[in-house]
Structure formats: C-alpha cells, structure tokens
Design a protein around this nucleic acid. Sequence first.
DNA 1: ACATCCCTAGAACGAACGCTCTATTCACTA
DNA 2: TAGTGAATAGAGCGTTCGTTCTAGGGATGT
Lengths: 193, 193
Amino acid sequence: MSTTQEYGTRERIVRATSRLMQQQGFAATGLKQISREAQATLGSVYHFFPGGKTELAVEAIRHGDREFAELLRDVLERVDDPAAAIAGCARDLAAGLRESGWLDGCPITTTALESAGRVPDIQRAAEQAFQNWRALVHDKLRRSGFPEDVAHDLAHTVINTLEGAEMSAQVSQSEAPLEIAGRHLARLIDSYR
Amino acid sequence: MSTTQEYGTRERIVRATSRLMQQQGFAATGLKQISREAQATLGSVYHFFPGGKTELAVEAIRHGDREFAELLRDVLERVDDPAAAIAGCARDLAAGLRESGWLDGCPITTTALESAGRVPDIQRAAEQAFQNWRALVHDKLRRSGFPEDVAHDLAHTVINTLEGAEMSAQVSQSEAPLEIAGRHLARLIDSYR
DNA sequence: ACATCCCTAGAACGAACGCTCTATTCACTA
DNA sequence: TAGTGAATAGAGCGTTCGTTCTAGGGATGT
C-alpha cells in the first residue's frame, strides 16, 4: 500500500480546482490549467461537470468546506476547553499556512469574494460553508455550557476573526496575526464564563 | 458648482480600477472594462500606467488604502472612547455594504488574496495598507492610555476581525456579522482597561 | 506661423479564455 | 461476439485578454 492515495478522475479534478482557486481565485484559474494539473483532459472535465466552470467552482467550494470542517471538528473534539481549542485551531492554521509557503489560505474566501453578488450558485455554496463552520463552534460552546445567544454570537466572531487573521497572515507572510487572534478569541470566550 | 466632483483622466482610471477590483477582483477585471468605465481610452491607460495591469492594481490598492484610512481616522477622531469608536466603525462598514447592494466590501482584500505570493508588488501594497490601518488603531489606543504591547495586539485583531466580519457580511448579505464583531471588539478592548 | 509636448484614439497582435464537437477507447453485458 | 454507454482525447469555435504601435488633437510658448 502506497502512502499517496489514489483518486478517481472526478476527485482529482475537484481537488486540483480547489487548490488552484485557493491560491489564485476563480477568474485567474483556467479550465486548461485545471485539466493539466488534475492529469485529466478537457473532455473529462466537461463530462463530469457539464455545468462548466461555475459548477466546478461550486464543487471546489464544497470540497474546501468539508476540508476545513474536518480540521475544525478534529481540534474541537481533541481539546476539551473551548477557548484552548480555538487557540489551537489558530495555531494549526498558522502552521499550515507557513508550511505551504504562505500560499494555501482559506480555500474558499478568494472565490467567495470574487463572486459575491455576481454568481449566485457560488455565493450560496460559500454562505453554506461559513454556516457549517459556525455550527461546529456553536455546538462546542453549547456543550460547554454557554447560553444560546452567547454561543451564537461567539460562533460568528470566532470564524470571522480566524478568517480575517488568516488573510492578514497570508498577506504579511507572518504567523503573528493568527497567534494574536487565538489569544484574543480565547480571552473573549473566557470573558463569558 | 456641481455636486459631482470633476476628476482628471488619471484619477478616473484609478477610481474605476479600485471599484471594479473591489467588486470582482484583479483577474476578472479587464483593462478594456476599466477604460470603458473610466471614460478613457486604452491609450490613456497605458500612457498614465506604462507598467500595465500590475502598476494599475498597485495604484488602485493605494487608493483603497487611503479611502479606508480616511473612514477609520474620521470615526476614531469623532468618538473619544476607543471601544465605542471601533463599534461605530463596524456600523459604518455595515451601512456602506448594505447601501451598495452588498457589492462594495473591502477595496483591497480580493485583489490581495488573489495575488498573495504571486505578484510581489501587489502583495507589498496590500501589506502596507493593513499596516497603515493598524497604526491608526494603535495610536488611538495608545492615546487612550493602553500599554504598548496591548495596543499592538489589539490593533491586529481589530483590523482582522473587521476584515473577516465584512467578508462574512458580504457573502451572507447580512449586517449581523459586523454588528456582532463591533460588540465583541468593544468588549475585548474594555477587558484590558 | 510654427514647433513642441502631453494626451488621446483605436487598430492590430499573439495568446489564452470557456466551451462545443466528433471520434475513439474501454469495460461490461446480452 | 456484438452491442452499449461511460469515459477519454483533443481539434477548433468565437471571444476576450494584456499589450504594442502609429497617428492625430490641442493647448502652449516663441
């Protein structure tokens, strides 16, 4: 058994699209580039995604959604204290960002911003992703005893601050924004205890 | 004297570029579209910006930098209490976003993310903008008596949380993320008093 | 009147874009 | 063995991309 998993053609196309859109966004990513990197042909791309580039972008956003949800779920299950778990999440994001040479930020933000208000399908998929991530944080806070309204608001700010800090970290090529965000979010959460 | 200010050709080009990149990013904005919306010709664009699209993007980011710095400076001067000022800033951003039909988010984020790690000139301009904005918040906090290290970290999180919340507000077409961010940032600042 | 210089105007270039189309290969069932 | 449909392959469509280039307009100074 090899260490590198084998994926089918469809899966390879989605993964290549997700990675390319993560790094350079929707408009800058061409279908030829996708098919090249996925080791598929243009024919295959249109076979699996007859809706063209938009359908592919929606699928890539769903992939990024699941990807980050998994990271979030892992750290929230692993660490009991919610404040510590969020700080750990910030650390994980910073590490991933640095290890990718500051290239792999949030997999959906760039595409979401490019398409907001102009490509409804993509906007809906991005909105759903943020909602899913907030729900994970919300549940964790509820299970830790926080009241409903507090958990609701904190879930928003946790996700949004992590998003903003990751963006800032990427642009300044520094882990500091995420490290600071982790500490501040932990402090904010603890202030509601 | 008319209410609509007259701008020179160069200024019109920069403003059109800034607005288009704010709404759809760098790659999706063509020079033909820019020259059309700026009521200039392609020749004029290349006359004023011989460096082509990249130079134009850098100038547009600098424009967005000054634009948001002005908004920030205004509210920080108008409101004495720093926590209240930041909350007011979040309100202003939410209002602007809603009034534009959720189209005009942060003028530089999309372009910054598209270009991070791939177009050094643009990345540098974006990094400089974030630095300028943080400096405004940092100074306000220092003048309000916060110690250096606290002000430094808070400046990071204030800007990053506002960025993340504005992005989220844009995608979900709701003022809630910014309203919540304003309240949480005020609470975080007050927790250091 | 003429020269100078800044700016405007838009045709044209090669490359890349999203997408369509036809042909072919392959695994599997009747 | 013939038949069927999914999957692959890539040429080519019209369009737009960023960029270059040459020519003309218009105010100014002499």
